[in-house]
Design a binder for these strands. Structure first.
Lengths: 99, 99
DNA sequence: CCGCGCACTTGCTTTTTGCAAGTATCGAGC
DNA sequence: GCTCGATACTTGCAAAAAGCAAGTGCGCGG
């Protein structure tokens, strides 16, 4: 195809440009976490957290790991883990600005 | 101070996590542009564009370059240009996902 | 002095985000 | 076997942000 492919940046922002999305990803970069852990760690509103997790799952950025009956964890897929560079770059930029 | 400094990522997202912000930055990464140019290139709503430019200016990410009386351009500061790595990382991630 | 282009602003609607409270499920304990 | 607490959400409603369309102020060219 000569066209049809969208802009990479615009496409990325549609998925991880939403509020809390990158914060969730960063949190999961150091290991799988459960819903309640993410909630407490991030302080995100529970409905937003649920919505983001659903979207990030649908986008193939994370997947659910059943631990017990009503206990499950969220972990990054390979695609999700590939966001590490972006997250690191942004974090470095942010740190440089608040000295 | 032992505390008071926020999280780098969270701080960064407050500034450039807003809708259109990174798209504006990327556009300016290849040179100064005027308001109308940005508007046409990005397709962003004019009021949002004006708001973002005001915020990005206040945050020291870009500055205004007067060209004539009622003609001015927007250009990235050094701090704004430092977002190139982040923008590139995100764009690469986005491109990798849409094959 | 009329219309045009530039750089916005203003008014109103729609979408997103946030808060608070409620729901479903299971397992432990009495 | 029934209440109690933990986990993982959903639901209802209010506030904030984003979006659309139309309007404003200013200088320039004719």
């Amino acid at each position: 195809m000569t066209s049809g492919d969208r802009d990479g940046l615009a496409a990325a922002l549609e998925l991880v440009g939403q509020r809390w999305a990158l914060l969730i990803v960063r949190s999961l970069l150091d290991g799988a976490k459960r819903y309640g852990d993410l909630q407490r760690e991030l302080g995100a509103p529970t409905n937003i957290l649920a919505t983001r997790l659903r979207e990030l799952h649908a986008a193939g950025i994370l997947y659910r790991v059943p631990l017990a009956h009503n206990v499950l964890a969220y972990a990054l897929t390979e695609r999700g883990a590939a966001l590490r560079e972006t997250v690191d770059a942004l974090a470095r930029w942010g740190e440089a600005g608040q000295q």
